[in-house]
């Protein structure tokens, strides 16, 4: 092992990992937004809205992320969507992970006792207010874990954006390998950086779960 080389590339890899983190964060924001809309769509009283939401989840989860990325980045200009690699990546990953996250949100909303809806509705609250004021806050604690798992998957899938030229961790690592011919040293540094990012996400999830549990215990 060439530890000197590892030390030399460390600052560059640290910079690249900042790009990986920002890819993850931007995609996460879009993903959560998409997921909320899709999850609400699946509980809509209008049938076509439910169909569209279900089809969206099925198609996004049924095709490879890499192909979705290529459709938007390379195919986008054909229908007037000319995006920079970073934006194309964030948009695709957000749309993709949103479909996965909507499933977790849907599951935890279903898991909330049906009696809660009945009670709120019989007190005169509308469907939307019932969801907003009573069902969603209770479901929020239940969805943290699945959203966290999906965020880990998201962070790792940012590596695919290297294929359209975003200089994030994987792209930088590959460039250093082709210039130094030291794959083990370079990929060890990159791998460690991913482990740190994933670890930070898992710790955040644990912290959030703890927070919500504490609140539930205080309320009980």
């Amino acid at each position: 092992m060439d530890f000197q080389l590892m030390g030399q590339i460390l600052p560059f890899m640290a910079e690249a990992s900042l790009l990986t983190v920002s890819l993850t964060v931007y995609s996460l924001v879009i993903g959560l937004f998409v997921a909320m809309i899709v999850a609400m769509g699946r509980f809509s009283s209008v049938k076509p809205i439910r169909w569209v939401a279900t089809a969206y989840v099925s198609i996004m989860r049924g095709t490879p992320l890499l192909v979705q990325l290529f459709i938007i980045f390379f195919g986008g200009p054909q229908f007037g969507l000319d995006l920079k690699p970073f934006s194309a990546g964030v948009l695709t990953m957000g749309l993709n992970i949103g479909a996965y996250m909507s499933e977790g949100i849907k599951g935890s909303i279903i898991a909330v006792d049906k009696g809660q809806t009945e009670a709120s509705r019989s007190l005169g609250f509308g469907r939307f207010d019932t969801m907003r004021l009573f069902i969603f806050p209770q479901a929020a604690a239940l969805m943290i874990r699945s959203l966290g798992v999906n965020t880990v998957i998201l962070a790792k899938s940012t590596a695919l954006v290297s294929t359209i030229g975003v200089v994030e961790l994987t792209y930088s690592a590959q460039r250093f390998v082709t210039s130094t011919y030291k794959p083990f040293e370079v990929f060890a540094v990159a791998g460690a950086a991913y482990i740190v990012i994933v670890g930070a996400i898992l710790l955040t999830v644990r912290g959030l779960e703890h927070l919500f549990d504490a609140h539930r215990k205080a309320a009980a």
Partner: peptide, 18 residues
């Protein structure tokens, strides 16, 4: 489970020949 598939593939691809 903690690192991307693409990175692992690259490691194998470049590492094996190394």
């Amino acid at each position: 489970m903690g690192t991307p598939l693409l990175l692992q593939l690259y490691l194998l691809y470049y590492g094996l020949s190394q």
